[in-house]
Amino acid sequence: MSAPTAPDSALVDLLGLVAYGELLAFDRLAADARLAPDLRRRAALSEMAAAEIGNYRRIADRISVLGVLPDDAMAPYVEALQAYHDSTEPKDWLEAVTKAYVGDGITDDFLRAIAGALDEPDRQLVLDVLHESRYAEFAAAEIRAAIEADRRVANRLSMWARRLVGEALSQAGRVAAADRGALTALIARREGVEVPALFRRLTAAHTERMAAVGLNN
């Protein structure tokens, strides 16, 4: 009788990062929904929160199937990701939707790139938990409407978005140290893909998203 195959440590580390990100996103969106100016928008953010906790459950279940406790897989990322959210807590509704728009966009671009290095069923699982386009469209519409009503909002939200990205990059360094090279290893599995090139593409995509809603980078 052969011994059970050890789980792919790089895969487990990535899924642990995704799982904790989804769990924190649920917390964030549920709290931010209270900042909404009306019930329609409060419900929209609450729906986003519900989707995040559903995604968390799918990832956590997959980690368990791989023979690892979800808590153990997530543990290396708790400090860095919690620090990011603690340092970027929105003060009002527009800051909340900008954080969702900017943060979710960068996260989705990164996961989409990483998913290409995974085998099935994990490739499709990671792609499945990417945020639905209607959520990005909702956040973008809120930002555009606010800028149209008051052009001064663009400067404030542009500064807020730059702060979000700066904090994200700062904490990304801590995540990279925590994951024991797992993400780098996964990226390296894709022929011709290097970490600096990947981050250049992520930055370019972020700049395009900013411009699309009337914010500057």
Rank of each mutant, 00 (worst) to 15 (best):
Q82S: 15
Q82P: 12
Q82F: 12
Y84Q: 05
H85R: 08
H85S: 13
E89D: 15
E89L: 11
P90M: 15
P90A: 14
W93Q: 07
L94C: 07
A96D: 08
V97H: 03
A100W: 10
A100N: 12
Y101P: 04
V102I: 12
G103L: 03
G103M: 02
D104E: 15
G105K: 02
G105A: 06
D109N: 00
F110G: 01
R112T: 12
A113S: 08
A113M: 05
A113W: 01
A113H: 05
I114L: 10
G116W: 01
G116Q: 06
A117L: 01
L118N: 08
D122G: 12
D122I: 14
D122M: 06
R123N: 04
L125T: 09
L125G: 10
L127F: 09
V129F: 07
L130R: 03
H131L: 13
H131M: 15
S133M: 14
Y135K: 13
Y135C: 07
A136I: 15
F138T: 09
F138N: 04
A139D: 06
A139N: 08
A140G: 11
A141I: 12
A141S: 12
I143A: 07
R144D: 13
A145I: 05
A145H: 06
A146V: 05
A146E: 12
I147R: 06
I147H: 06
E148M: 13
A149H: 08
R152Y: 14
R152N: 14
R152P: 05
N155L: 05
R156F: 07
R156L: 08
S158L: 06
M159D: 15
W160N: 05
R162G: 10
V165A: 03
G166Q: 10
E167H: 12
A168E: 07
L169Y: 04
S170K: 14
Q171K: 06
A172E: 09
R174K: 13
R174L: 04
V175K: 02
A176Y: 04
A176S: 09
A177P: 02
A178P: 01
A178S: 09
D179S: 02
R180P: 03
A185F: 03
L186V: 03
L186C: 02
L186K: 04
I187P: 00
A188V: 02
R190Q: 09
V193G: 00
V193R: 01
V195P: 00
V195K: 00
V195W: 00
A197V: 00
L198Y: 00
L198M: 05
